Simulated assay, not measured.
Amino acid sequence: MAREGARPAYDPAGHDTALRATLQELRTGRWMSMRRLLTETTAWWQWTRRTQVLATAAAGTDVVRTWLEEEPHSVPATVMHARVCVERALRAHREGHPHTLDLWHEAWRASHTATRAAPPDPVPWVCLMALARLDRERQWAEHRVAPPGPMLPPGPWGLLAEADKRDPYNREAHHRMLQFLYEHGTSGRLAEAAGYAHWAADTAPPGSALHLLPLYVRVERYRRSGGRDAALDLHWVAEDATREAQRALYAWFEQTFTAERSLLDLNHVAHALWGALQFTDATRLFEALGPYWTPQPWAYRTPDQGDTAQAVEIFLQARARCRPA
């Protein structure tokens, strides 16, 4: 565990030291380390996570384009090109950029190219899932497919099925579906997203990160409230909130190894257990985090949800409160 009072660091690589070294190389414009790392990555959960983190770092550069030009038949380069195009389209969407539509279509073409270049790979389908949220009116037929179960809304279920076929219970694919429902749900109370999160968690096997989806919806509900209503703090200690936190602890945390756990998931479970006053259990999550943290969900507990300095203070207060337990 981080030493007493030590301020945590945000590192997208987290406990993945090989990924951290590759990111350092990437930031200097070199792609050889990225190719080597991806060639050595065999587990789909790790491949999905590493390509996402690398694309986030590479989106503001031409390093992946250079790699693809040097090795036009490289499957990892083709997948990374799709990843980067999707990241750029999503950034443009968030910023209201006038070229969002062009970037969206470019990313869609790159993702479909990747599906053909890498048939067994779930990531190109995850990319298409990520782009689905840009279709605000659900004009594309693939974004309004009938759901696989009752009480679920139409959505990009076919894309999710393709990702699941290649990597069952792929964490990012299901989070992309959740993000789609946040933007496209018909209920302002996040009812569709909540229903989906519980459905996915109920169908997930032990050790799956999908057991955490209800925690993410709970945090999203709090974020949308602005955290201004003190009465909302009660929902962190409500019976269903405590049950969701305990489920995440026993069905996910206790069934996984350090390398498998994302920092964002660890932070959400630590936050949920702390909010539910389960301090002894929360300490285990803080120990697993070690010197790292992520601004979310802690930032949503502050008056200014974009203030990282305030967010880290909330994190430190929570960690200190749990340690004596």
Rank of each mutant, 00 (worst) to 15 (best):
A193V: 07
L181Q: 02
R144S: 05
L134A: 15
Y10M: 12
V53Y: 01
G227Y: 08
Q255K: 13
T203A: 15
Y196D: 07
P295G: 08
A270F: 01
S208G: 07
V84W: 05
T115W: 01
A89I: 04
R301H: 10
L19V: 05
A194I: 01
P120L: 02
V64F: 02
A18R: 12
E244M: 09
H211A: 11
A197Y: 10
L37I: 10
A197P: 08
L160A: 14
D265R: 00
H198G: 00
G158V: 01
P119V: 12
A288Q: 12
L160E: 03
T61A: 12
A320Q: 12
A2K: 05
A276R: 12
A245C: 06
R247E: 04
S208A: 11
R166F: 06
V219F: 13
Y292H: 15
S208L: 04
P206R: 09
R30G: 03
T42W: 12
P119Y: 07
L264V: 10
D304P: 07
A58C: 04
V75G: 02
T258I: 03
P120C: 03
A163V: 09
W108T: 11
P214Y: 06
A55N: 06
S225G: 15
A191I: 11
E40H: 05
E40F: 01
H81T: 13
P291A: 07
R138K: 13
V123Y: 14
T42M: 07
T56F: 00
A107H: 03
N267P: 06
T39C: 08
Q46E: 15
G227C: 07
L103T: 04
A259R: 13
P154R: 11
H105S: 09
E254G: 06
F253P: 06
A282H: 07
R109C: 09
V53E: 00
P324S: 09
V64G: 04
D240G: 01
A2L: 14
R218C: 00
A325N: 12
G185N: 06
W157A: 01
W293Y: 13
E287N: 12
W298N: 10
P291D: 09
R7D: 08
F257E: 07
A59I: 00
E142N: 03
L101Q: 13
L103R: 15
R83H: 10
T39M: 12
E313W: 03
A325S: 15
L23H: 03
S262R: 13
R171P: 02
Y292R: 08
P76C: 01
